[in-house]
């Protein structure tokens, strides 16, 4: 279920089973990717290739935390939680 706009990304629950929304198309670019949401028509930038990979891998893990733990270096994990939280806010990610 998508989060609504009144929630801040502090409310992001990384223990849930987040995945890429079926309404979102990803266009790879040198810097990462563009993500376009056909429902809310928002264009969001995925600002690194690692983030693109993470977003696409999410569905293979039981939770966002598990995906980050398995694929992102420990020093960077916190910033990726924040990046996923922002993507959840813009409904690029949904809980399956």
């Amino acid at each position: 279920m998508p989060l609504n706009g009144s929630q801040s990304h502090q409310d992001f629950d990384a223990t849930l089973n987040w995945k890429l929304s079926p309404d979102v198309a990803i266009r790879p670019e040198q810097f990462g990717a563009l993500a376009y949401h056909y429902g809310n028509r928002r264009l969001v930038f995925l600002k690194s290739k690692d983030l693109v990979q993470l977003v696409q891998d999410l569905a293979n893990y039981e939770s966002a935390s598990a995906a980050i733990a398995a694929t992102i270096a420990p020093n960077n994990q916190q910033s990726y939680v924040a990046a996923l939280a922002r993507l959840a806010l813009s409904e690029v990610l949904v809980v399956s």
Binding site: R27, E29, Q30, F31, L34, S48, L51, S79
Partner: peptide, 20 residues
């Protein structure tokens, strides 16, 4: 690596297809 390098600098180099 931070997941957020300067996007503006990347955009200046162009994209594979236009955004707008």
């Amino acid at each position: 690596m931070s997941p957020e390098p300067s996007l503006r600098d990347r955009f200046k180099l162009g994209l594979d297809a236009p955004i707008c």
